Computed example of a mutant assay.
Amino acid sequence: MSIQIDPAAISEPSEEQPRKPAPHPRMSFGKWARTLGWRHLIGIAVVIFALFPIVYVLSASLNPGGTLTGSNDLFRSISLENYSTLLSDERRPYAAWFFNTMIVGVITSVGTVFLGALAAYSFSRMRFFGRRVGLLSLILVQMFPQLLAVVAIYILMRGIDQIFPAIGLNSLTGLILVYLGGALGVNTYLMYGFFNTVPTSIDEAAKLDGAGHARIFFTIILRLVAPILAVVALLSFIGTTSEFVISSTLLTSPEKLTLAVGLFRYVSEETNTNYAVFAAGAVLAAIPVVALFLYLQKYIVGGLTAGAVK
């Protein structure tokens, strides 16, 4: 028995028309204000609160009047006179201060990252006597403010200056060594939490191939923990370039001062006080920090949060 199929009964599949999404009901203004509007208001207020000091200092640096009260009207008069005065002042060598600050900041940040990474790797991967005591000691030491150690640091550096003047008082090398010792504890503990997020199976696989701790650390681990290294370098650079108390205690020669100490002289002297020139110097000093922050911003969020959860 044969089956007859009517060709007319077979219809070509029709292309389905894309369904239009159902329109969302319009949200009333009152409901929008209760659910989303207050967030926008808080965000705008925070942005204004954060940007106003920056805009005010920038306006003061461009104001040729030389006083902060004359800068209340933002950008009323614009001139580069303050920047010219800042760079041409022979009694206050701003270029030397800027160069000194960059040297101290770069060397301190690189040294802090390297030494902190070595210590964090040891605490994270090696098991040795005194490991837990060492970690607790790092936390306890950071509870005491660094300001309490200024007198002790000065006496210690004065004693070293009598034997090794190159690393004693009024030397950038001695200041760098002090910064390295002060920042090693907290940065080591910060990196220790990040190192624990790296699986130990990677180390075991490398050891099976004959790699030692040094090769594992320099060729494998450092590449995996790049975000926390960038965060520590940024925090160390910002902290050292803006530090005032220790640098003002150890440095005395005008040509060896850092920016924080040197710019303070524009507002601390009773005669010839010029806040506008101080503002110009502060604007120029902020450029390297902002540039470094923008360059490393992709690592900041991951580096600060990855080591928080184990």
Rank of each mutant, 00 (worst) to 15 (best):
V283I: 06
V261P: 00
G281S: 07
A291I: 14
R265L: 15
S236V: 06
S248G: 14
V245Y: 14
S236F: 02
E269T: 13
N274D: 07
I287K: 06
A291P: 01
G262Q: 02
E269Y: 11
L250K: 13
A282P: 00
Q297V: 02
S268N: 12
E243M: 08
F244A: 11
A291F: 11
Y266V: 04
S268A: 07
E243T: 09
L284C: 03
A285I: 03
E243V: 12
N274S: 07
S268D: 08
I238M: 14
N274V: 06
G262D: 00
A285R: 12
I246S: 05
G262L: 01
P254Q: 03
L257T: 06
L251Y: 01
A291K: 01
E255M: 04
A280P: 10
A282D: 00
L294K: 04
I287A: 04
Q297C: 04
V261L: 02
T252Q: 13
A291R: 07
T241Y: 04
E270C: 05
V267S: 12
F237I: 08
A260W: 12
P288S: 04
T258A: 02
A282V: 06
T258L: 13
A286V: 07
E269M: 13
T271W: 09
K298D: 12
T271G: 09
T240L: 09
A276D: 00
Y295W: 14
S268V: 10
L294G: 05
S268T: 11
F264I: 05
N272S: 10
A260Q: 14
S248Q: 14
E243G: 07
E255D: 15
Y275T: 06
S248I: 08
L257H: 03
L235P: 01
T273V: 08
K256R: 13
Q297N: 14
L296G: 02
G281K: 05
I246K: 04
I287S: 02
A260F: 09
S247K: 10
T241S: 08
F244E: 06
L251I: 12
I238R: 12
F293L: 11
Y266D: 13
A291D: 02
K298L: 00
G239V: 03
T252E: 14
Y275E: 05
L292R: 03
V245H: 10
L251H: 02
T241L: 05
G239I: 01
G262C: 03
V267C: 10
Y295S: 14
Y295A: 13
Q297I: 01
E270Q: 08
E255R: 15
G281W: 03
F237W: 08
L235T: 05
P288T: 03
G281T: 08
K256P: 05
L296V: 10
T271H: 11
A286H: 03
Q297A: 08
A282L: 04
S268L: 12
L235G: 03
N274H: 08
F237Q: 11
Y295N: 07
S248E: 15
N274E: 06
A280Y: 05
S247Q: 15
I246A: 04
V261S: 02
L263Y: 06
F237M: 11
Y275M: 07
F244R: 15
Q297D: 09
A276Y: 00
Y295K: 13
E270A: 04
